[in-house]
Amino acid sequence: MGRATTAPQTRWERAGVEARITHRLARALAADARHYQIAILAALLAYAVGVLGAPIAPATVLVAVTVALTTQAVATALLARRAGATTTSAPAFDFRSPLISALSLSLLLRTDTLVVVALGALVAIAGKFLIRVRGKHLFNPTNLAIVVLLLAVPEHAWVSPGQWGESTVVAFALACAGGLVLHRSERADITITFLVAWTVIVIGRGLWLGDPLAVGAHRLTSGALLIFAFFMISDPRSTPDSRAGRIVLAVLVALGAALVEYGLWRRNGLFLSLAACSMLVPLIDRWLPGPRHHWRRPGPASPLTADRSPDR
C-alpha cells in the first residue's frame, strides 16, 4: 500500500499507534525512577485539586515549576561557565529533579501568597547548589524549602497533612509501592526502614496507651506521610551512601519526628526531623562509607535519560 504515513486509517493501524504510544510511555516511565515519580505526583496533584478540592491554585503550580526550573537552569549555566570549556565535567540542565521538587512543594506547601511559593521553589533548588558537603547536597530540596518557610514565615506557610482522605491515601500508597517494585530502587531501603520505624513508634505508642488499633491506623493514613516517605526521605542525592547509613538515618528521622510530635506536641515533626537529621549525613557517610549515587538508567541509554555526572 503506497500510502504515505499520514493519519492512520484502519482500526489495526490506529491500534498499532496506540500500542506504540503506550509502549513509549511505559518505557519512559520505566526508564528512570524520576519519570515514574513525576507521573505519580502530577496525578496526585490533579486528583487533589479536581476531586478533593484542595486549595492549590494553578498559579501556585505554575510559579513553583517555573521558579524551580529557572533556578536550576541558571545554576547549571553558572556552574558550566565556571567549569570553562571542559564540557565533560560541566553539569547539563536536567528538568526532572527540579520538577519533582516543584510538584512536591505544590502538594505539601500551603500559603496565602504566591511570593512564598516562589521563595520556596528558589530555596529548594538554590539550596541544592549552595549547601553542599563534599560534593553532595545536604538537604532534600523540598524538605529544606518547607522547613525554612515554616520557621521563617510561619504566618504565611503551613502544611495541611490531614487533607487527603483515607481512600486517596491507600491508592497513593499502592502507586508509590508500585514504583519501588518497578524500579527495584536502590533507595527503597530508606523508605521501607522509615515506614517500619514510624509504624512501630505510632502503633507501639498506641499499645502502650491502650488505644484501639484504629487510632494508630488512622495516624498512619496520611498523604503527607507518604509523600514524605516516598519522595523526600528517599532522595538518593541527600541520603547516606551506604545502606547501613541510610537505615541509621531512617530510624533517627522517625525518632526525631516522634519527639517533636509526641514529646513537644508540635506539628510538622517529620519535616523538622528530616532537616535536622540531614545535617548528620556527612558524619554518617564518614562512619559508614558507601558508593556515591548518580542518576542513571538501567539498560540502553536514551537521549532523555542519558547519564550525566556529576549531576545535581
Binding site: 478540592g53 496565602d112 495541611s160 490531614g162 487527603w164
Partner: peptide
C-alpha cells in the same frame, strides 16, 4: 490571631 484553623488529622472540607 493569625487565621483560619483546620484539623491536621482529619480532612477539613468547605
Amino acid at each position: 490571631p493569625k487565621g483560619r484553623v483546620e484539623t491536621v488529622n482529619y480532612r477539613t472540607v468547605r
